[in-house]
């Protein structure tokens, strides 16, 4: 058994409880869509304040796995999850209301999906759901979140304008700000740069590196170069199994499993 109570960064702050350096601990996770098994016995420990990349070919289950972490799969009819997914030592499926879970585990999607509302209202959406109505408080959250998403300077003069008028890259950073505004601990990014041009992608990658200081980032990516550039840890998924998981350098430079070797070298057949 592993020791779950390694002293983490948070312990430095006196009034904070000592937290594990683990964010998610998944044991024996199986997921079924009806009779189809999409995830097979996944065991994975996600480390806090790191970027973890999930890689693998299309249909390998990496996105499905990501969506088990904030229970977005609950929305899929006929979807069933077995096993245990613990967030900070609490069972995310048995002991946490999905609404509460999603406030702690934010998500950014493949296609930027800002609401058809003003930039301000997009970012204030989550805080308002939590019952924050005071304008000064919302103003502050909006500014902080947009600053964290490195887009405040671009948008500060047009907060009342429609978010749909922004470029794709701006929309995606707005969506990151929107996710950060509810103050999550974990940020899930589901191929968040695959619809963006290289410059916007670079922005988001820089941002992820900045965000891991405060948040735990878990990203699904099709782009192996991206995983190599920014991820600390990488998990390789294939046909619903997690084949190999380790430090990014190890996965790319010294993979142990035959299937990983073939995938990262580009010879998949």
């Amino acid at each position: 058994m592993y020791n779950d109570s390694v002293i983490g960064v948070a312990a430095a702050e006196a009034d904070m409880p000592i937290r594990s350096n683990l964010s998610f601990t998944c044991s024996h996770v199986n997921l079924y869509y009806g009779s189809f098994q999409a995830l097979k016995d996944i065991n994975l420990k996600i480390e806090r304040n790191k970027i973890t990349a999930l890689i693998g070919p299309s249909g390998c289950g990496k996105s499905t796995f990501l969506r088990t972490l904030n229970r977005m799969n609950d929305l899929v009819p006929g979807c069933r999850v077995e096993g245990e997914i613990m967030l900070d030592g609490v069972d995310a499926y048995k002991d946490v209301d999905p609404i509460v879970l999603r406030r702690h585990v934010g998500m950014v999607f493949q296609q930027p999906n800002p609401f058809p509302k003003s930039i301000y209202d997009n970012v204030a959406y989550g805080p308002r759901l939590k019952g924050i109505t005071k304008k000064s408080e919302l103003d502050e959250i909006v500014e902080t979140s947009l600053r964290q998403a490195a887009i405040w300077d671009e948008l500060k003069d047009r907060l009342k304008k429609s978010a749909l008028g922004l470029s794709g890259g701006q929309q995606q950073r707005l969506c990151i700000a929107r996710a950060l505004a509810v103050n999550p601990e974990v940020l899930l990014m589901d191929e968040a740069t695959s619809a963006l041009d290289p410059i916007s992608t670079a922005h988001i990658e820089d941002l992820a590196l900045e965000l891991k200081k405060k948040y735990t980032v878990i990203m699904v990516t099709h782009n192996m170069q991206q995983a190599k550039r920014i991820a600390d840890r990488t998990a390789f998924f294939y046909l619903g199994e997690m084949v190999e998981y380790g430090d990014t350098e190890q996965i790319f430079d010294h993979p142990q499993e035959e299937r990983t070797i073939r995938y990262v070298s580009g010879n998949f057949g």
Partner: peptide, 19 residues
């Protein structure tokens, strides 16, 4: 994406419909 985006922010189904 709008519906999923709202739900992923911790909105209930009804809040998503209404807002």
């Amino acid at each position: 994406g709008w519906k999923h985006g709202s739900l992923a922010l911790g909105a209930t189904h009804w809040e998503t419909i209404w807002h």
